[in-house]
């Protein structure tokens, strides 16, 4: 598998990356490469230029900011998985990171790359959605902060504009019950369906691979808020959703799995 030919630039700073992005029409950022490179090798993506931000190590950090944790966009999944700070104040996030791909993937892939790619089948975007995280986006006009609930727009599409770069993920500290249920056939695969649930007085649930973007299970959340039982609420897991059909699972089976997994997630998170 060989990608089509492309130009390559190595960014020396965030500002440098943004300036290159602003000056080239079809540039793509390369961080860990675990989303972009497979697409390029399959020739499903053929960017004219690759802007390599892999050496911007100042974007790799996990810092306590009082009521939230700031995670640099270039932080590898492996580092998220093993962060003592995250394990103590947002334990679901390291757990979800531990379920991404395999060790090789987790040592290369970055949290910012996974979120920017905006794949509805990825685990971390759904996790940060359930956590109500905020994203810091840097562009030529400075920075803006976007909540996760407004970030994911469509299939592999986010509010990031072509000259913007995600630099930081702000994850609220979270001490309540939580659960992450990932159903797949091989350990390293994407989820056929995944469910992230956090409960802190009120319950937020997000779904993996039940639509074009990571999704909140709003019907379940509403039912719970109205006092429904777990059994009844989880029956609404796929309300209003149109999950994909592929070789791994039909849409109908995904609906069923979502109910089962939401039920299991709630049983664990609300324990």
């Amino acid at each position: 598998m060989f990608p089509a030919s492309f130009d390559y630039a190595k960014a020396t700073s965030v500002a440098d990356a943004i300036s290159i992005l602003s000056s080239v029409d079809d540039a793509k950022l390369l961080a860990g490469g675990h989303s972009l490179l497979p697409l390029m090798k399959l020739r499903l993506a053929s960017p004219g230029m690759i802007v390599d931000i892999g050496s911007l190590t100042d974007l790799s950090y996990i810092e306590d900011k009082g009521d939230y944790v700031a995670v640099g966009a270039l932080t590898r999944h492996h580092d998220v998985q093993n962060s003592r700070l995250l394990k103590s104040v947002v334990p679901i996030l390291p757990y979800v990171a531990s379920r991404v791909g395999d060790p090789a993937v987790r040592h290369r892939g970055t949290i910012g790359g996974s979120i920017s790619h905006g794949d509805g089948a990825s685990d971390l975007p759904a996790a940060v959605l359930a956590l109500d995280a905020k994203f810091v986006l840097m562009g030529p006009k400075g920075e803006r902060v976007v909540p996760a609930s407004e970030f994911f727009v469509g299939f592999l599409e986010t509010v990031l504009s072509s000259d913007e770069l995600l630099t930081e993920i702000r994850v609220p500290k979270f001490s309540g019950g939580w659960s992450f249920q990932k159903f797949n056939r091989r350990a390293q695969d994407w989820a056929i369906v995944g469910v992230a649930a956090v409960n802190n007085g009120h319950t937020r649930i997000s779904l993996v691979n039940m639509g074009p973007t990571p999704l909140r299970a709003t019907a379940v959340e509403a039912a719970l808020a109205d006092g429904a039982s777990i059994e009844v609420a989880s029956g609404r897991a796929s309300d209003g959703l149109d999950p994909p059909s592929d070789l791994n699972a039909s849409s109908e089976y995904r609906r069923h799995l979502a109910e089962v997994l939401v039920k299991r997630a709630l049983a664990e998170a609300l324990r």
């Binding site: 399959l42 395999d102 056939r185 091989r186 350990a187 390293q188 695969d189 070789l247």
Partner: peptide
């Protein structure tokens, strides 16, 4: 042939 990559053709690994 619909599954020509190991993404869709499920060769298991030791984890399974």
């Amino acid at each position: 042939l619909l599954n020509t990559t190991f993404l869709e053709y499920l060769v298991p690994s030791a984890s399974e």
